[in-house]
């Protein structure tokens, strides 16, 4: 939970809420075809989790948050570019929607999804 003081009272945002925002923005990032379970390395069998918390961890660090994303990337894309655009996208969306500064976004590429082998 993270708290923000408003002039009327406290606003509390849960990790789960932040994770949901991060999850949505990751899925809109080009090159990301799914989220992987953070505990299992072979994420391929479990593409597209319904629960956003499965592929996202959120940790509070003072007034800011650190987010870890476990993603599956489309085979044939430049993975480093995809990963950095996920990090940018997640940071931008979380800061915009929730209003909490994001200290860092760590992107873990847990698998590749092959639509077409060349």
């Amino acid at each position: 939970m993270t708290d923000k003081k408003d002039h009327l009272g406290k606003i509390t945002v849960s990790q789960h809420a932040i994770a949901t925002v991060a999850y949505q923005s990751a899925l809109e990032s080009y090159g990301v075809v799914g989220m992987a379970d953070k505990d299992i390395v072979s994420g391929l069998s479990k593409l597209l989790f319904k629960d956003p918390a499965a592929g996202v961890t959120v940790n509070f660090d003072g007034d800011s948050v650190t987010i870890d994303m476990y993603i599956v990337v489309e085979y044939g894309t430049r993975i480093s570019s995809v990963a950095s655009s996920v990090a940018n996208n997640v940071k931008f969306q979380v800061e915009k929607v929730i209003g909490i500064p994001v200290k860092s976004v760590n992107v873990h590429v847990r698998g590749l999804h092959v639509s077409n082998a060349d």
Partner: peptide, 15 residues
């Protein structure tokens, strides 16, 4: 294009 893909639009272009 794949090797040099930069940014979101570059990745999409390479695809």
């Amino acid at each position: 294009a794949l090797m040099g893909a930069r940014g979101n639009s570059g990745v999409i272009l390479s695809q």
